[in-house]
Nucleic acid binder design. Structure first.
Lengths: 138, 138
DNA sequence: CTGCATCCTCAGGGATACTG
DNA sequence: CAGTATCCCTGAGGATGCAG
């Protein structure tokens, strides 16, 4: 289990923050987003998520377990050889995933504004440095 | 700068994911949420965020810089002694913060469902273990 | 194929001390 | 007060190997 004492304390202070962390975690976001479209088998999901950013099988498994425990993801393992496990969203998980996707879509829409802001910021910073240098020279 | 090569690669693949990470980062969420209500001075914000989870001044500063660079947070430092720096949301940041707060509120509302799911999960897991033990005994 | 266990690395992030 | 710089350590997370 990955839950450290520090997190236990955090949970005590504000339990729903932990859920938020799970949902907005690096791989949680991507998994939920993918599962919003359809159900996936494990390595299928791994590939799908991997289209955006590579995820180790360990982290994906861990993420899915957390999401399952929180009641967002349903896992059904068919008892066949070779094993086949399908992951899908519960109704609760669907709600969460929609929120997350909304946020993700928003960031996509506003990327240009963010880009501009960054350039302005970097330019301003650069100008600041130049002035500083000038001051030193006299 | 804390941007590692790994993140540079991630940015190349999918730039808006990075923004999402900033916004949903541990301290980003709390800062945005706090600033949605009003503007704060640095250590005032530190205290406010600290009501939920303690944040080192280093991490708060880092978080605020990232958010400022992305154009979410406006920072105005009054040139007075002692220094006074006010942080507030830009219109863009307000949009982001509202999304984040929506997500946060949703988790709060659904905490009971999550709790139940967790208990069910843990019970099922426990039952599984018990059966396993039984099987071993015969 | 789907995991769980193990080991190992590195970067996130806390504590502290110092500057403007 | 509001940071910046430094040190240091924990823990997230990748790689590998094994089991069912």
């Amino acid at each position: 289990m990955g839950v450290s004492d520090k997190w236990a304390r955090a949970e005590a202070m504000c339990p729903h923050r932990l859920v938020l962390e799970h949902v907005t975690s690096r791989w949680g976001v991507l998994a939920l987003d993918a599962l919003l479209d359809r159900s996936y088998r494990f390595s299928e999901l791994r590939r799908e998520v991997g289209r955006v950013a590579n995820v180790s099988e360990k982290m994906l498994a861990q993420t899915l377990q957390t999401l399952e425990r929180d009641g967002f993801v349903r896992r059904d393992a068919k008892p066949v050889i070779p094993p086949r496990v399908d992951y899908s969203l519960t109704p609760l998980g669907r709600e969460a995933a929609e929120q997350v996707r909304a946020l993700a879509r928003w960031t996509g829409l506003r990327m240009d504004a963010v880009q501009q802001a960054r350039e302005a910021y970097d330019r301003a910073k650069e100008a600041g440095r130049a002035q500083e240098g000038e001051a030193v020279l006299r």
